[in-house]
Design a protein around this nucleic acid. Structure first.
Length: 489
RNA sequence: GGUCGUAUCGUCUAAAGGUUAGGACACCAGGUUCUCAUCCUGGCAAUCCGGGUUCAAUUCCCGGUACGAUCACCA
């Protein structure tokens, strides 16, 4: 075991997106995991905006990130919108910080101006490629570089070419040979730092203890290690997360493969609890057979060393199942709040009380909140009779039209005389089975069609009860009328 | 091409030398007096290949194969 050197130190984790668009689903785990860790250990979670690439900057992207994390319930303790003791939290506002650290390297003779043009470097690269060699800038390191005046890129001068070994909390012990080391750019010719330099400065100044990011950074880590040494900094604990893979492939799930934004799942009626649960269990489990975890349970049980090292496919069916589980866990009042924007238009006039009654019936049937209109429209608007549904029904198609009309009439009068609570209605329906001598498969199916004209619906007595006597009578009458009319045509 | 990494049911995963290789999603069948869903029961289905180490390998080592990441004045 490693000595517990950071035992008493408050852990500080961060999520550091670049504002280039929405947060897509393959990406959000690198916000979730550091957040869980910070909450678990009473640490701090920091949001930092890495906007040093002006070409890719998208207006409004920071707000999008803030909005998405807010919906998920991932809250930060320090960030661009709320400030903190280690600000600013937007990289373009920290230029002087990077310059200060760059000067330190220049003074030590570990940074120099890159005298070549972009085309010249590109030519070196092509040459290396033609020789089937990996391109290393340090092979072309200039003898007497000019003094850096800020108009040329500033490059790091690797002090020592050697093999690096390090520990990754997820991937285990890693190492890489000298080929991984190179004179990379610290400050671009536009005066802004590269990610490679900026994140090291920021993490050090912001006292970050754990860097959690995607595994695309693994090949660069030896470079970072050599820079930490040159800067005389202690590297934070590192963890690289495997990628989430596209459902139908083995490639990283990215925007190009149609990776959805987190917001899309929101509008599809996925609960944030379900999305977090799903994302966390994609590549992590606590070693038990538990599948459903609350956020509090995740905070309590999460650990980086139980995160899977291989990528995992994004399985929407599993997410859908998990969402259903979470919908069923909600109280009706809570569910009612969540579905506020998902009702069919026809429900606009309905009372909250009526809507809640409907909700009770469909709660077990919802996989996503967006399915609500599909499942409930006939509670709010009069359905159009479609006798084809009856004709297509295996059992009902055996009866003559006269028999069907007669059954409907019998049902209509029996229901007219019934009390309208669900229990009494069940009694009425049972009696009706006896008096007509019909099987439930015939009688109940028929009544169900006549009052809903939907391919499926909740239990018959419940459905009838909620629709109410007046409307049930009218719908049965309409069914009878249209049935007779169709017969004569 | 160089460097680095990964490999258990179709999918997500458990088993950190000894298990009839477990669970979940999906799928199939049955049950819950109609349907759809929920719920319950049952079923199908896996250790990439080849060597080693060991009394014993899914597990450790080596080699293959497959797959992935990366080699930017992007992050």
């Amino acid at each position: 075991m490693m000595p517990e050197k950071t035992q008493s130190k408050t852990i500080r984790t961060r999520f550091a997106p670049s504002p280039t668009g929405y947060i897509h689903i393959g990406n959000v785990r690198s916000a979730l995991f550091p957040w869980l860790l910070a909450r678990q250990q009473n640490g701090k979670f920091i949001l930092r905006i890495e906007d040093t690439d002006q070409a890719r900057f998208v207006e409004g992207a920071t707000e999008l990130v803030i909005n998405t994390l807010g919906w998920l319930g991932i809250a930060w303790d320090e960030g661009p919108d709320i400030g903190g003791d280690f600000g600013p939290y937007t990289q373009t506002e920290r230029k002087d910080h990077y310059l200060k650290w760059a000067q330190k390297l220049i003074d030590k003779g570990l940074a120099y101006a890159d005298p070549y043009t972009v085309d010249e470097v590109e030519a070196f690269r092509t040459e290396a490629k033609n020789n089937k060699k990996a391109f290393l800038y340090r092979d072309y390191r200039p003898e007497n570089p000019p003094t850096w005046d800020g108009t040329k890129p500033l490059r790091f001068k690797v002090p020592e070419i050697k093999r690096y070994s390090w520990h990754d909390e997820v991937m285990g012990d890693l190492s890489a040979g000298p080929e991984a080391l190179d004179d990379f750019i610290l400050i671009k010719s536009d005066g802004l730092p590269t990610y490679n330099f900026a994140h090291i400065v920021d993490d050090a100044e912001m006292d970050i203890t754990h860097i959690i990011r995607g595994l695309e950074y693994i090949p660069s880590i030896p470079k970072y290690l050599s820079l930490y040494e040159a800067l005389e900094l202690q590297p934070p604990i590192m963890a690289c997360l495997p990628h989430i893979l596209a459902p139908d492939g083995k490639k990283k799930l990215g925007k190009r493969d149609g990776a959805k934004s987190v917001d899309e799942y929101r509008t599809e009626g996925i609960l944030p609890e379900a999305l977090i649960n799903f994302l966390a269990s994609l590549g992590w489990n606590d070693g038990t057979e538990q599948e459903i975890f609350t956020v509090d349970e995740l905070i309590e049980k999460f650990s980086l060393n139980r995160v899977q090292r291989s990528g995992a496919r994004f399985d929407e069916q599993r997410l859908s199942w998990m969402n259903g589980q979470w919908i069923r866990k909600l109280t009706i009042d809570d569910l009612f709040e969540r579905v506020r924007n998902f009702w069919p238009e026809s429900a606009e006039q309905a009372s909250d009380e009526f809507k809640k009654q409907v909700l009770v019936l469909v709660q077990d049937r919802l996989k996503t909140l967006a399915e609500l209109p599909l499942l409930t429209s006939y509670f709010f608007t009069e359905p159009t009779p479609d006798w084809q549904m009856i004709n297509d029904n295996k059992q009902l198609s055996k009866l003559s039209r006269d028999e069907i009309i007669s059954l409907l009439k019998t049902a209509q009068s029996a229901l007219l005389a019934s009390e309208y609570d669900a229990e009494s209605l069940q009694a009425t329906l049972n009696t009706l089975l006896e008096t007509t001598g019909q099987k439930p498969g015939i009688l109940f199916s028929l009544i169900r069609f006549a009052i809903s004209w939907a391919p499926f619906s909740p239990a018959l007595n419940d459905t009838i009860s909620i629709i109410g006597s007046t409307k049930v009578q009218a719908r049965l009458q309409l069914a009878i009328d249209t049935g007779l009319k169709e017969q004569t045509e």
